[in-house]
Design a protein around this nucleic acid. Structure first.
Lengths: 243, 243
DNA sequence: TCTGCTATCCATAGATCTATGGAATATGAG
DNA sequence: CTCATATTCCATAGATCTATGGATAGCAGA
């Protein structure tokens, strides 16, 4: 149906809000928006992350741009997309909360993969701050490297989930690990914790994720995890990884 | 496209959230949901409020029911719909906030009708409480009667916008009026204030609206405004209406 | 049971959306 | 200017959605 811009302001209003609704009517667009709330990405990278052809991703991004939910930055021949402001992320989070509250399926899905109302309680931000100060805990950022670079908890080390297995041997078994990811709907940290626990390690998830940390007004650090690549030898015990 | 329930939990998750998105992709459904966040209503009443044939409204309601955003209650031959919980209202409010923040059109529309970043600042809840105690202010609920009945600010008098003109003469010109409605996206109170001011009265809007009042944990009253119909004679000065 | 209501269910024409191939654009390196 | 790369723009077949008329179902009163 066609709802042209009429003289009736009230109808117009809902019309405008529906532009936003259009974005979240498609699962892939929700996924894309969720990704963009974490860090900016190129069209190509988004395609790889979602399994869509870049041309399809571009089409979805145009819909999101129409709704002003994303902004772009050009760098050379590449275009980086990002969520257009804090409100967008808050909206996505609210959508997730609502799904969790009203759709039993959402909770089931999360639980099925180990997140959800998990067996082990999570570490609160306050507790993490306290324990980090005393130095007996390793804070692990298991999100993709670009998201870590876009912002992370100070002192956390970047170890994307897919590299976790490979580096399991490097952990100091004497320290507890606190892993975090993107938030309550994200499964990266729960999976990491499951992996670590399977090895007999002490590991828990942080409550929520990085976005919530930032929104709580806590300090954040940015930049890649030692640009050179490998971490500086010898300093790693600070982070709880055996050299 | 068809996104069947696959083994990939992640895809499933966004799929489920898209069920909610489906509700807000259609302007009329947003309008319906917004109405249901205010008070429960029958299918017929919703049709009248939105200008849709009841059969169309029913179809929209099924979509909302699928997403579990509404619940029903049967009373005789009539079915009353309502928003399914606080989270739903919060979601609608967040959608409105996002629209306001990102879509200039939304703000323009609101401003065009007198709401939006209006010329007169609004009264805060704290200020209203204080002044209500000293009794030099009339609190006016300009929403439809059924919404007033479903919950209102204690001491407020119900005077739906469409009856305001007719009863203008009853106001005590010595008192300031504070009008409220459904929230920042609602235009009822701003219009009421405009009408009152045109008559030279002191009038302002309350910040936000009733839902926010309730969410702030403040006291609310329920029930119709004197079941008999006319307000008790003689007690009205308490409310600022001349007898 | 029959009748009158209110609401849901069904079918459908017409409008809209999605994924994708292929062409057109924009930017940077030669 | 030419070529290569990353995107956007366009066209389109096939799937999905919307509004609505007509039929059906649940409930209350005669």
């Amino acid at each position: 149906m066609e709802y042209e811009t009429s003289a009736d302001g009230r109808a117009d209003l809902y019309e405008q809000l529906a532009r936003i609704g259009k974005v979240v009517v498609h699962p892939k667009r929700i996924e894309l928006l969720d990704l963009l709330c974490q860090a900016e990405r190129s069209v190509e990278a988004l395609g790889a992350a979602t399994g869509l052809k870049f041309t399809t991703v571009s089409a979805h991004l145009q819909v999101m741009r129409q709704a002003r939910l994303v902004e772009t930055r050009r760098e050379g021949t590449r275009v980086y997309y990002r969520a257009a402001g804090e409100e967008v992320c808050r909206f996505v989070a609210t959508l997730g909360d609502l799904g969790r509250a009203r759709l039993a399926e959402v909770d089931q899905i999360l639980r099925a993969i180990g997140a959800g109302s998990e067996s082990t309680e999570r570490v609160t931000r306050a507790e993490l701050l306290k324990r980090a100060r005393s130095g007996d805990v390793v804070v692990l950022d298991v999100r993709p490297a670009e998201e870590y670079a876009a912002g992370h908890i100070p002192g956390a080390i970047s170890l994307p989930l897919e590299h976790l297995e490979a580096r399991l041997g490097e952990f100091d078994p004497g320290l507890e690990v606190v892993a975090y990811c993107r938030g309550p709907l994200c499964l990266l940290a729960p999976e990491a914790v499951a992996t670590l626990r399977a090895r007999g390690m002490q590991a828990r998830c942080l409550e929520d994720g990085f976005p919530e940390w930032r929104q709580a007004g806590l300090r954040v650090a940015t930049g890649a995890d030692t640009p050179g690549g490998a971490r500086e030898e010898g300093h790693e015990t600070r982070l709880g990884l055996a050299r």
